[in-house]
Design a protein around this nucleic acid. Sequence first.
RNA 1: CGGGGCGUAGUAUAUCGGUAGUAUACUUGUUUUGGGAACAAGAGGGCCGAGUUCGAUUCUCGGCGCCCCGACCA
Length: 415
Amino acid sequence: MRQSKLFTKTRKEAPADETAKNAELLIRGGYVHKEMAGVYSYLPLGARVLNKIENIIREEMNAVGGQEIRMATLHPSEPWKQTGGWDNIDVLFKIQSRTEKEYALGQSEEEIVTPIAREYVQSYKDLPVAIYQIEQKYRDELRAKSGIMRGREFGMKDMYSFHTTQEDFERFYEEVKKAYLKIYNRCALVAKVTEASGGGFSEKISYEFMIVTDAGEDDIIYCDACNYCANTEVAKNKIGDTCPKCGKENLVGAKAVEAGNVFDLGQKYPKAFNFTYTTEDGGSAYPIVGCYGIGTTRLMGTIVETLSDERGIVWPESVAPFKAHLLLLGEDEKIKEEAEKLYKTLNENGIEVLFDDRSGISAGEKFADADLLGMPWRIVISTKSITAGGVEVKRRAEQKAEIVALDKIVNFLKV
RNA sequence: CGGGGCGUAGUAUAUCGGUAGUAUACUUGUUUUGGGAACAAGAGGGCCGAGUUCGAUUCUCGGCGCCCCGACCA
């Protein structure tokens, strides 16, 4: 992508109406555009990041056997009335058509997925099965806050699994927990698995995946020595206590963001929708249901919050809009030709590169943009670099740069 | 939803009961090019409604919107 053709531009000033770091940097970089409180549009660079995050999640969900679907987000009111959600879920957006017919906007989709599953799951032979989608969700939050971290419209992957036995559910539950940890790891984040309450959702305990950051709105308590971690909502111990799991060290507290959760829903929804299957001995039974969510946009915000520095965003390679940012400095025609050739070579070798080919822009501004936009690798081509023997290559996260010969750069970046 | 703050150009800000200024971004031209360049010219602005006033962007009331704290959070 040529920066001269890029739809968006960076800006020097942070917006006055945002204080969250993720919103400031993403807006300054032209990654997102704010529509209203808690609602953001994702622009070319932002959409690329989101697509990459979604693809990581997609790969891991497929790996545990999830099948991707796309459910409607505009919902009939009937299933919501059937489960009581229409009156009991206060974040449910309810809308009325001009003929006064009532609808709901999807905020989680048990009410939609259960009737669909009922249609296709008739026998124990059809189980277990897991289906998921990655779509926008809508929640009528009283107060949207923290930029893209807590909005009224946001991206979320939601998976639902159906099982014949509690044991089989628990087996799958564990697999998904592992897949989730892989997803965070691939996004350069470290998540702690915490016990939390199921909210109104489930009477059983649920697990949340917490990422420690001051931008988070949850308080957790965890052990430095083992993997014990709990939400203070349900924690039975306090900061400074001994760890109930390993008995060592002192428990510490931290702010964290909930980057995912898994719930044991039991048979609540199958019962509400009279969803039974035929068992091996010819009887009938309700399946056991699990649900598993990860906020994709929140994950993007968390990456910005945890990895950025004072100059801008620092994307991990796995989700960066481009792997490299190629900066052409100066107006020398020979250098320009070399830069064009290099841009072509990088593209031909499958290296995603944003090419700052803008003329009349000072070197300082290009450097500042590169720092703000945060591609993992910065490649500078200029009279100075060519004289030194090639291009100057620097990681966004590091200070030191090195000169790499033009014919070595592809291999250099590939490893 | 309770409390607090704030709405002026694309963005960020200033001043003022009487012509709304600056920076940046934008357009044109010349120069410039390794850490947010220089000069010149150009274009662009008071959230909405009511009230007070000779006159309101400014004061008052109402609405709408945005941010923060709290509460809430499938």
